[in-house]
Amino acid sequence: MPPVAPLPFLPDAVIFDMDGLMLDSERAINTCMASAARELGHALPDSLWLKMIGGGDGLCRRLLTEQIGEVAADELLLRSEALYDAVADAGIDHRPGIVELLEWLVARGIPRAVATSTRRPLAMRKLDAAGLLPYFDAVCTSSDVPRPKPAPDVYLLAASTLGVEPGRCLVLEDSPTGVRAALAAGMTPVQVPDMLEPDAAVRALAHRIVPSLADAQRLLEAQLVTG
């Protein structure tokens, strides 16, 4: 991986995606979707679940409807949601480095918000069960905005809630959809890929891509020293 450019500033706020960035939930979601499909007798390719990453409820429903029809898609989603609820309530594993990064930001008084494509009730349950909710000053979800990612709405809401200009916000994202949303909001995204490696089209966005949250923290630490 080529060297990553330093951050252009020490951000006034850091905004976090949730699934796949802070929580190892993309794998859990995919497992529940595949299990529900098998239970209901649908032979669907694993590549379908990867296409859903970062896209929210609307994209998942559309992709499933294209494959198996509207009625069957709704049935599959209901079953997978029931399976996933049990996983979420038990507490989804953290992605490596998330607690260390959050504690570093808290210690320096840098405001923090969540901006997620998940609906509010489930997002709050997941963050609470995983022990991450106390670290955040605001939680913004797809329930709170008219358009999901890749529209910028949820990121703009997070900045407004924190009282920070969008251009002074750093965004941490795992998915290409989220990166596009952050760029559309006029923010500086750093992508930490999880299940989807950035392809040529994503790399052409010319944003920063790092292999881990620890590397994202090092970018911030360097800016604190030089900025």
Rank of each mutant, 00 (worst) to 15 (best):
residue 94 H to L: 04
residue 79 R to W: 01
residue 80 S to M: 05
residue 85 D to H: 13
residue 83 L to S: 08
residue 60 C to S: 14
residue 91 G to N: 13
residue 90 A to N: 15
residue 59 L to D: 09
residue 81 E to R: 14
residue 83 L to A: 05
residue 84 Y to K: 08
residue 67 Q to V: 05
residue 58 G to V: 03
residue 65 T to V: 01
residue 60 C to L: 14
residue 51 K to G: 14
residue 62 R to E: 13
residue 55 G to D: 14
residue 79 R to A: 08
residue 71 V to G: 05
residue 56 G to L: 12
residue 90 A to H: 15
residue 56 G to R: 04
residue 90 A to V: 12
residue 80 S to Q: 09
residue 79 R to V: 02
residue 65 T to M: 04
residue 57 D to R: 10
residue 93 D to L: 10
residue 59 L to Q: 06
residue 59 L to V: 10
residue 49 W to R: 11
residue 61 R to K: 06
residue 95 R to P: 02
residue 95 R to Q: 07
residue 51 K to T: 15
residue 61 R to S: 01
residue 53 I to Y: 06
residue 49 W to I: 10
residue 65 T to C: 02
residue 62 R to D: 10
residue 48 L to K: 04
residue 70 E to S: 04
residue 74 D to P: 00
residue 63 L to A: 11
residue 52 M to H: 09
residue 85 D to A: 10
residue 76 L to P: 03
residue 57 D to M: 12
residue 63 L to I: 11
residue 62 R to K: 07
residue 89 D to G: 09
residue 76 L to Q: 08
residue 72 A to Y: 05
residue 59 L to I: 11
residue 57 D to E: 15
residue 77 L to A: 01
residue 91 G to H: 14
residue 95 R to V: 10
residue 54 G to R: 05
residue 78 L to F: 09
residue 94 H to T: 05
residue 74 D to G: 04
residue 52 M to N: 14
residue 86 A to Q: 12
residue 56 G to D: 12
residue 87 V to H: 06
residue 69 G to E: 03
residue 52 M to W: 10
residue 78 L to E: 14
residue 93 D to C: 07
residue 87 V to P: 09
residue 86 A to C: 11
residue 70 E to H: 00
residue 64 L to S: 07
residue 73 A to S: 07
residue 87 V to E: 08
residue 61 R to P: 00
residue 68 I to P: 02
residue 72 A to S: 09
residue 94 H to D: 10
residue 54 G to A: 04
residue 69 G to P: 01
residue 93 D to K: 13
residue 79 R to D: 05
residue 67 Q to A: 11
residue 48 L to G: 10
residue 81 E to G: 08
residue 82 A to T: 15
residue 69 G to M: 00
residue 80 S to Y: 03
residue 55 G to M: 15
residue 88 A to R: 10
residue 78 L to N: 15
residue 92 I to W: 05
residue 86 A to G: 12
residue 66 E to I: 02
residue 94 H to S: 05
residue 49 W to Y: 11
residue 86 A to D: 12
residue 87 V to F: 13
residue 92 I to L: 08
residue 74 D to N: 04
residue 60 C to G: 14
residue 62 R to T: 09
residue 59 L to S: 11
residue 87 V to C: 05
residue 60 C to W: 13
residue 64 L to V: 03
residue 68 I to F: 00
residue 95 R to Y: 00
residue 86 A to P: 04
residue 84 Y to A: 08
residue 94 H to W: 12
residue 55 G to Q: 14
residue 56 G to W: 10
residue 69 G to C: 01
residue 91 G to D: 15
residue 88 A to H: 11
residue 70 E to L: 01
residue 48 L to I: 07
residue 94 H to M: 05
residue 63 L to Q: 09
residue 87 V to L: 07
residue 58 G to I: 03
residue 89 D to V: 05
residue 85 D to N: 13
residue 61 R to L: 01
residue 94 H to R: 02
residue 88 A to E: 08
residue 85 D to F: 11
residue 69 G to S: 02
residue 83 L to C: 06
residue 93 D to I: 06
residue 73 A to K: 02
residue 61 R to D: 02
residue 48 L to F: 01
residue 62 R to N: 03
residue 70 E to P: 00
residue 83 L to M: 08
residue 73 A to I: 01
residue 78 L to K: 13
residue 91 G to I: 13
residue 76 L to Y: 06
residue 71 V to I: 03
residue 62 R to H: 06
residue 55 G to C: 15
residue 84 Y to I: 03
residue 57 D to C: 08
residue 76 L to A: 05
residue 62 R to M: 09
residue 63 L to D: 08
residue 78 L to H: 12
residue 61 R to W: 02
residue 53 I to V: 12
residue 71 V to D: 13
residue 56 G to M: 11
